[in-house]
Design a protein around this nucleic acid. Structure first.
Lengths: 235, 235
DNA sequence: TTCTATTTGTGTGTTCCCGCACAGACGCTT
DNA sequence: AAGCGTCTGTGCGGGAACACACAAATAGAA
């Protein structure tokens, strides 16, 4: 329960607010620690809190009735999980799961709903972020349709690394298979290729990125497009 | 240029506004005729107008550098094209193409931007619609990943039919291949299957749905999920 | 009518990924 | 150190969709 807030990385969304606006919201912000695998929202759940990751990552998953899942959005310190509450819907349409453990700032849904009825910098910023997430989902939708598992794995590892601010992190092939919407064996093949080319190194749930430049080259165009988009609205 | 507004179907988004709010906006609403294949926004274009379809359909496409495309959102009389302007971004991230000719109501981006800074029923309604579109994109993302061309074609035809309010409409296999993100030959196979089962009939760009019940059964679960979601916010 | 462009049909070989079925490797516990 | 659970590696058969290459049918224009 004891939140170990390192303070190194802070949520860039909140961070880009004007000082006065941040001060106004500060009393509503509660630091929390998110642990790996924690499910913040299940599909259909009422959303009680929204989360602004600092050095953690939250994955938004779409799930089918046959239990196959696919990540449709990745939320790091550039964003927030639970944006639908701001849009007036407090039932989650995706599963939100902690993909990278770390700290985050939480806010109650009540507060977010109140902010939806108040114009200002925060309102505007959430509009921009909503658009950015919308953009990310659209791009990954096409990416999942057209690109190979190798390319998508490379893109996904780069995006994860960017958000964690770290080249090494804990993730099993099984977990990644649920994100990429492919079988664990498929992830194994792709990861083997990347490791054989010395772009990554991995073992029993630990992954290290060895060569960011070549890994990015192996990733599809979608990586650059998404990265560019998610920096647009942050000042 | 002469807009032939039949008036039968009206945009349900605008239609669900309280009378007073509608009256306030009425001077800004301009009826327009949309012709098949017309490109409303190209990727990267500045958005000058937003569109509220009456009996027309606008498809939002994501395009890759190798020219392959995929529909990420379908906008009919339940929605609006150009929602990103409301979110403060007037550059289009998708291609918007008229998939079904018909009438629509247009509004200038300037007006939409003004409404983003004014709270009220219209503001709230656009929030809800934004969430609904977000939901549709997420679901179709997973659908495109997991479901067969047959199922996706069935779903897509049902969605198109719903929005046009018609069981017969003009569409070539080539066009559909660009929506589903598969080859034209792939659409041919799937359409053959559906025709052999007497669910649809088609010939040279004209498609008729013969058996909605069985076609819906052939479609994946995504159809029902999307249909349900897109009716939620309309009163 | 004849010609032409568009639309649809189909065959062949290939590739990617799936499903299944294990086997091996590693780390943690007792 | 023995055992067990987790994680990773790999082989094989199959199926869906791909790329390419044409052939046939139809609508509309000349």
């Amino acid at each position: 329960m004891d939140a170990q807030i390192t303070g190194a990385a802070v949520n860039r969304l909140l961070n880009s607010l004007p000082a006065a606006e941040y001060e106004r919201l500060a009393p509503e912000l509660k630091p929390v620690a998110l642990s790996f695998g924690q499910v913040l929202y299940e599909i259909g759940d009422a959303i009680k809190h929204v989360y602004f990751p600092n050095d953690s990552i939250i994955s938004l998953l779409s799930a089918m009735s046959d239990r196959s899942t696919l990540e449709v959005g990745m939320v790091g310190n550039e964003g927030m999980a639970g944006i639908s509450v701001f849009m007036g819907v407090d039932v989650s349409l995706t599963r939100a799961i902690v993909q990278g453990a770390g700290s985050a700032i939480s806010m109650t849904s009540t507060t977010i709903r109140r902010e939806a009825n108040r114009l200002g910098p925060f309102h505007q910023l959430l509009h921009r972020y909503s658009h950015s997430l919308h953009s990310q989902i659209s791009q990954s939708s096409a990416c999942n349709r057209f690109h190979s598992v190798d390319a998508r794995l490379a893109r996904w590892l780069m995006m994860t690394s960017d958000r964690l601010g770290n080249d090494e992190f804990r993730l099993t092939q099984d977990f990644m298979s649920k994100m990429l919407g492919v079988r664990r064996e498929g992830v194994n093949r792709a990861a083997s290729h990347l490791q054989a080319a010395h772009m990554i190194r991995y073992s029993r749930g630990m992954i290290a990125i060895l060569d960011r430049v070549r890994l990015e080259a192996r990733a599809c165009e979608c990586y650059a497009i998404m990265k560019n988009e998610s920096d647009q609205y942050l000042n």
